Amino acid sequence: MELNKIEILLEKYFQGETSIAEENELRTYFSSPDVAQHLEQYKLIFGYFSLPKEQMLKQEIPLQSKKHYVAWLSIAASVVVLLGIGAYIFYNNDNVNEKQDLGTYDDPEVALKETQKALALLSNHVNVGIESVYYIKEYQESKELIFKQ
């Protein structure tokens, strides 16, 4: 009767349907010396799983601390970032001082002429944008004529 039960458990084991208790039962059966002749081939499988439990590592592995390496690396990264920020501020400081002249004029007539030039330029660009809107409107009208929406 026990042999029949072991064969059923083996079939369930290879189908992946066994519980942990059933697998432990299979391990204990195959670790015993009285295994059926036709089931001897499975003894190696279940004996292999119990083998690592008996082996112990006798060699000590020295743990190397990377704490000092990480500390120096973080300090170096901080210095590089600070140097980068300092260089950026140093080289762009001159550009900021030069750009503070925002087009202010002392003579009101010159200011009026410059304002008119800027507004004419703006008007020209707006007119170009409006012309392209007319093209889109014509396209829309022709599309509605063709597809009759």
Rank of each mutant, 00 (worst) to 15 (best):
M1R: 11
K5W: 11
I6M: 01
F14H: 06
Q15H: 14
Q15T: 15
G16W: 01
A21I: 15
N24L: 02
E25D: 13
R27E: 05
Y29T: 00
Y29R: 00
Q37D: 06
H38D: 11
Y42N: 02
Y42Q: 03
K43T: 01
K43S: 01
F46E: 00
G47M: 10
G47K: 08
Y48W: 13
S50W: 14
L51D: 07
P52K: 12
Q55M: 07
P62K: 09
Q64K: 14
S65E: 13
K66Q: 12
K66S: 09
K66C: 10
H68T: 12
Y69A: 15
W72E: 10
A77C: 12
A77D: 01
S78M: 12
S78W: 06
V79S: 02
L83H: 10
G84Y: 00
F90K: 08
Y91F: 12
V96I: 11
N97S: 04
E98M: 02
K99H: 10
Q100V: 05
D101M: 13
T104V: 15
D106L: 08
D107H: 12
E109S: 15
T115C: 03
Q116A: 07
Q116F: 05
K117M: 04
A120M: 07
L121N: 05
L122G: 06
N127A: 10
E131D: 10
S132T: 11
I136T: 09
Y139D: 11
E144G: 06
